[in-house]
């Protein structure tokens, strides 16, 4: 049986890799990928804790909710990225600094 600490350490590593991607990448799609990695790390935590919660199954249920939320976030985020690309012809976040057309 794998102990809880193993899961927590793996998810900490994945979360920090996602944080690095969000901070360092200069491409909006890669920033979205970093956010996805962070959400995946949190889902791993949910699932790992859910093993001890047999009466409520709270962890697994809310892991499924988190997957749905991530899918919604990606759909809206990619729509915004496509609009931004159409407007500015770039998806580098540092080149997008004007609010008006």
């Amino acid at each position: 049986m794998i102990t809880l600490t193993h899961f927590l350490l793996v998810s900490a590593c994945i979360f920090c890799i996602g944080l690095y991607a969000v901070l360092a990448k200069r491409n909006a799609i890669m920033i979205l990928v970093g956010i996805e990695l962070m959400i995946n790390a949190s889902i791993l935590n949910f699932v790992a804790f859910s093993r001890y919660d047999k009466t409520n199954y709270g962890g697994q249920i809310f892991a499924l909710f988190a997957i749905v939320l991530a899918a919604a976030a990606v759909a809206v985020g990619l729509a915004i990225i496509l609009n931004v690309y159409r407007q500015f012809k770039t998806i580098n976040p540092q080149n997008i600094h004007e609010l008006k057309d």
Binding site: F7, I43, L44, S50, R51, Q60, A63, L64, I67
Partner: peptide, 17 residues
């Protein structure tokens, strides 16, 4: 990551992932 969910006995979450 889906494989890791299986080790926490969350098969449905892994398939959904």
């Amino acid at each position: 990551m889906a494989g890791l969910y299986l080790f926490a006995l969350a098969d449905f979450v892994a398939i959904t992932q």
